[in-house]
């Protein structure tokens, strides 16, 4: 873990020396990049949550088709995570 951080610091120092103005010495990634990463991680979390809910919903729908609506809504609920994460993009960008 520590090595990685050190490596990142070194790289960022190199960046700084080579005259990439946008990056401060301890920064290997831009603010926008960070925001994009946050959205990506949130989407990953949402996807993982949907995996379980989705398979349970499909199971329930297979038994009783009237549950389609409920199942669909439950399945996409974790999608709110991504929407909230998108807020970060607007705050930063």
């Amino acid at each position: 873990m520590f090595d990685v951080i050190l490596a990142m610091v070194e790289v960022s120092v190199l960046f700084a020396q080579s005259g990439l103005e946008a990056l401060t010495p301890l920064q290997a990634i831009t603010e926008n990049g960070m925001a994009a990463l946050a959205v990506g991680l949130a989407a990953l979390g949402a996807g993982y949550a949907e995996r379980g809910i989705g398979s349970a919903a499909i199971g329930a729908i297979a038994e009783d088709e009237s549950l389609f609506g409920t199942g669909l809504i439950m399945t996409v609920l974790p999608e709110t995570l991504v929407i909230l994460a998108l807020v970060v993009v607007f705050l930063v960008g």
Binding site: G52, S55, A56, I58, G59, A60, E63, D64
Partner: peptide, 14 residues
Amino acid sequence: SNYEYVTARVKARR
């Protein structure tokens, strides 16, 4: 294991 799927179906049948 696909617990979610199986338990959902099983509970409906139960």
